[in-house]
Simulated assay, not measured.
Amino acid sequence: MTRLVQRSLSSPLGPLRLVASDLALVGIYFPDHHPTPAHAGEEAARHPVLDVAARELDEYFAGRRRGFTMVLDPRGTAFQRAVWQALADIGFGEQRTYADLARAIGNPRAVRAVGAANGRNPLSIVLPCHRVVGTGGALTGYAGGLAAKQWLLAHEAALAVIRSDGDAPHGDLLRQVST
């Protein structure tokens, strides 16, 4: 079994728990994350993967980062990983519906399954499931709660207006990491 490490990171949304292997970030969890995270690790004050993740998230919350470069290894089924890659393709400050995601993965009838996979996203914020809304723009469930989702959307909307030069798109964040 792969050794996992974790660290708490203070954020405007409360403490986040970052979980990593030696090679990649595997989870970002809210205090009352729903569903309860499957991954946990031993506490690590210093760790190269956690250090990069903490720095990039701090920059994001401070409004100095619009995309992430950290190596990710979300653990899930092939279908879930396809949905999570579609999340990674949603640009900063943009929103998509569950139907949009289903079409993006080539399975337009899988809207409910896409919603379930979105709900199992282990890398909140970095794989931006907060950018997925219901039909007509309705805010739907979020692992960190709807208040956190509203905060993230407002944060990005404000920065998208202020700064339109932007970073490059996420690209293929879901590189396979051999562990």
Rank of each mutant, 00 (worst) to 15 (best):
V19L: 04
G144R: 04
E59A: 15
Y142N: 12
S11Y: 02
L139D: 12
A110K: 09
T36E: 14
M1H: 05
L87N: 03
A104E: 05
A24E: 06
N118T: 15
R3G: 01
V114Q: 06
P15S: 15
P15L: 14
D165Q: 13
R17W: 11
A38Y: 12
S11E: 00
A82S: 12
R103T: 09
G67A: 15
R103I: 10
T135G: 13
A40K: 11
Q95W: 05
A138L: 11
Y142Q: 08
P122W: 00
V161C: 08
V126M: 02
S8R: 13
H39T: 06
T2H: 07
L72Y: 01
T179L: 08
L4Q: 10
G136C: 09
L4R: 12
P12C: 04
A78Q: 11
W151T: 05
G145M: 07
V132N: 08
S124Y: 10
P169W: 08
V114C: 14
A160V: 07
A148D: 12
R96C: 12
S164M: 10
G106H: 00
A147E: 15
G91M: 08
V83S: 06
P15W: 10
G106P: 02
W151S: 01
H33C: 04
S178K: 02
V132C: 11
D58C: 11
D172N: 14
L146K: 14
F92E: 08
G115C: 03
V71I: 14
L23F: 04
T97R: 09
H33L: 06
A86R: 05
L16E: 06
H39K: 09
R7W: 02
Q95C: 12
F61H: 03
A154K: 14
A54P: 00
Y29P: 03
H170D: 14
M1A: 05
F30D: 01
P169V: 08
A157C: 06
G171W: 08
T77D: 00
R17E: 12
F30S: 00
V26M: 03
N121F: 11
D32G: 10
M70I: 15
S8A: 14
L23H: 11
L9H: 07
V49H: 01
A82F: 01
G93C: 10
C129K: 06
L25H: 00
D73A: 15
L152G: 07
I125W: 04
P48D: 03
S21C: 08
V83F: 00
T135C: 08
P74R: 03
